[in-house]
């Protein structure tokens, strides 16, 4: 994960960051405190409430379907499980 740190001559002008969304290189998945969300696909109605409430943009949606979680970024807050209207998401202990 650690990027080679650049010297001052190699940095873009004005301290800007010229790579949009580069934070995706920074994985926050290891912030989870021993629990993670899992999806029960059978129950899920693809209402996408979990998606709109996720503070970490860590819900995978493709073709209108809830596909699961970006565990590289999910911080395990539990909002998705808490807000899922039909209990399709469960917070489970993280495996070692």
């Amino acid at each position: 994960m650690a990027e080679k740190k650049r010297g001052w001559k190699e940095l873009p002008i004005g301290a800007i960051i010229d790579e949009a969304g580069s934070s995706e290189k920074f994985k926050t998945g290891d912030w989870r405190e021993g629990r993670k969300p899992v999806l029960n696909k059978d129950k899920c109605t693809n209402c996408l409430l979990c998606w709109i409430f996720c503070p970490d943009s860590a819900i995978i949606v493709s073709n209108n379907e809830m596909k699961g979680f970006k565990y590289d970024y999910c911080k395990g807050c539990g909002i998705c499980a808490n807000q899922c209207p039909i209990g399709a998401i469960e917070m489970v202990p993280e495996e070692e």
């Binding site: 004005g14 301290a15 800007i16 010229d18």
Partner: peptide, 17 residues
Amino acid sequence: NPITVGPLDLQDYYFEH
């Protein structure tokens, strides 16, 4: 071509900037 202007710099980059 979105850029980020005026980001937070910590001990590892402020000096270089």
